[in-house]
Amino acid sequence: MLKTFEQAVALIGERKLLHISGTEALLRKLPKGNWIGGSTEYFMEENGGQVSGETLDIQELAFDTYKLSAYGPATLAAVTKDAYPNGFSIIILPFDSEVHKQYAQNAADYEDIFLKNMVGWISGLNLGAADQTPVAVNGSTGEVFADKAVVLHIGLPEEKTVQINIVNIFTPDAKSPVITFGEDGFKAKTCFVDGKEVVFAEYIAGNQLDTKLPLIGDYSGAGINISIKSIEDGIVHFYAPVFAGIQYRFAENIPDYADAFNQKIKEIENTDAEFACNCILNFLYGGLEGKKIGGFYGPVTFGEIAWQLLNQTLVYLQIV
């Protein structure tokens, strides 16, 4: 829920455990306390998508067992070991940092990652403003990081179960051929289209493909989106890595993102979530500013985490 800076200070003063998103400038001014934060200026709220440099999205987390930690590239893989045996962890990674890249490429191999409940997001900035840096903040120490991940580990009683889900409005285009890559990475010069190697940028241009639509990876039946960031000097750059061995297809066009989200969310019985985030590309490409998406509210992010890094996806976590 969006709060003013003064309201945020008051909540921190009450020693509440908080997940906070807002601009780097506001986060830097907040007092120390039981909170973690990440930078963004975009939010999905009850009254619709919003862009604000004056307010902060605050999620109160009513849990007694928790710890806040920061991880650099050398320690990041320990994040799953530090998680409570039963509970969940919210991780915030600054966009384009080494920890962002490292987590994106290696998280699936972290020890017991799928036995832990790892959600989170990539922090960002206002795309129209200069002199901003994506940051993650450990509120307990006041440290602001552009190069480290900040994690809130929460422990739950044995009888509680955590469920992480996604809302993916995209489906693979039935007409899209299967696209595979020879190696893992955030960029690709070539790919294989139905097994034949081609220059990916030329394939996209030649087939007039819309790069606002994600590639959907087939994870044994679940669709995981990878978004195209840019095409420069014949190289296609992605917001999350593609992996060799995964089959991708381009997504079908979505005429109305807000309607697509609302239709999907309507099918969800319970929308009470401890954490939710949605993607900046959905916000921008779908023109979500001012549009209401029922059910899940929180920061609009530069990458979403449901165990692994996803793109153009709404992620939410519930306790059942």
Binding site: A108, I164, S220, I246
Partner: peptide, 20 residues
């Protein structure tokens, strides 16, 4: 080799890793 959409997304992700 077919598709299965599990309720627990982690199972799809784990299955993909273990298949490899």
């Amino acid at each position: 080799t077919g598709s299965i959409q599990f309720k627990q997304l982690a199972l799809n992700m784990m299955l993909t890793r273990l298949k490899g």
